[in-house]
Design a protein around this nucleic acid. Structure first.
Lengths: 219, 219
DNA sequence: ACCTGAACACCGTTCAAGT
DNA sequence: ACCTGAACACCGTTCAAGT
């Protein structure tokens, strides 16, 4: 991952000869904290408010001017990750043949798994229910609901064309989601070594289970 | 869950007239700490070494005489939970028709999901890769490997009788595990409300996806 | 308006000292 | 042999005080 280094943004107007190394007003501390948290997570570290503050060059109390709690920060981080996740999935769907719903479902599943494999820590932040207990996380829910809606539409089209063996679309959709969610989670939770699956076998296996599932539901 | 209350075991030899309310030697502090942690988790609380020590009536440093770290305590907790999980699954398998591998696989899947639904916090402790990073957790791995082996045997039998559509048994097994793991995790991570699945719809849905999957792999 | 820095109540963990 | 209790370095969070 090419880590976009902490951008020292030019101060808002005329830059003073020597830009102060620790400006009193940060400019966009909120954004800097979210970025720091994303980098911490991607590096495999625990995300702490204090460490994010350190990375942003501010005092331990400063983040609480922008987020009422650690959970609120993590919710913002999750929203950003979910946004990236969704946009990658939509790109994959756009590249798939638009007249074949099962092929589109396959693309959706593969894009889902590929993103999770490339961004395991961010996937975990999106997935785990530790933050935003209710669905107070409007943005996260919205982006997720969008993916759910796309999948529902694709399943509906497939059913309309007589391509599905099973009539209960909701059940089919939950099973599909459980499959990819479970695979991604097993990866993140470190189960594959115990299953004798080496790192370079994960991606082919991901493809394999998507195909196996689609074969199973297709008529 | 009938909480087995912290057993005040009789002091080792002749009990003094009034048993001291806070005995200096605990008897089995290790066990008491694991039990406390299991109860804390089941109650939805964070498991902390200090809180477990408090529950066991000892000082904050005492647990470290029995566990080198918090992770070591959690590993012991996970081992106990995994043991219970495995024994419930084996009971369910024993009750299923022994001459029908697909029916046994169905029983296995349902027992897996039922235990996870009844013991979400314990399932999470077993599943999450935060503790016992490698497979240093001998007991957990052994009990889990046992379940994996049973499933592999059942799939092998089903294939030998020509009951499977797909020849790649490993792939089929990973897909099956990802399905139940993902369903359990979605429950724990709190995703079902966002999917419009109420609490009393979870169990039928669990059955539904197991049946759908087995239909998909059966010939 | 935004940030500092000290403070508080929590953790995990260590270690001398007690019994 | 096992536990206490103080200590240390961390957290999240609050709040007066600074600019």
């Amino acid at each position: 991952m090419p880590s976009p280094k902490p951008k020292r943004r030019p101060s808002r107007r005329a830059a003073s000869p020597r830009p102060s190394p620790k400006p009193y007003h940060h400019g966009d501390l909120r954004r800097a904290l979210v970025d720091a948290a994303l980098h911490l997570a991607a590096a495999g570290a625990e995300v702490s408010v204090r460490e994010a503050a350190r990375r942003a060059g501010v005092s331990p109390g400063a983040p609480f001017r922008h987020f009422p709690s650690r959970d609120a920060l993590m919710t913002a981080v999750a929203a950003e990750a979910q946004r990236r996740f969704r946009s990658e999935i939509e790109a994959a769907l756009a590249a798939a043949p638009s007249d074949d719903p099962l092929a589109q479902i396959r693309s959706l599943g593969l894009a889902y798994l590929r993103w999770a494999m490339k961004n395991p820590a961010h996937f975990e932040i999106i997935s785990t229910g530790k933050y935003f207990d209710h669905d107070a996380a409007g943005e996260v829910s919205k982006d997720n609901a969008e993916i759910i809606a796309v999948m529902a539409r694709l399943l509906g089209e497939a059913a309309a064309r007589g391509k599905l063996r099973h009539g209960d679309l909701k059940r089919t959709q939950i099973a599909a989601r459980a499959l990819v969610y479970g695979f991604a989670r097993m990866l993140i939770d470190g189960h594959f070594p115990r299953w004798g699956i080496a790192e370079d076998e994960v991606e082919p296996m991901a493809e394999g289970i998507v195909d196996l599932f689609i074969d199973g539901i297709a008529k």
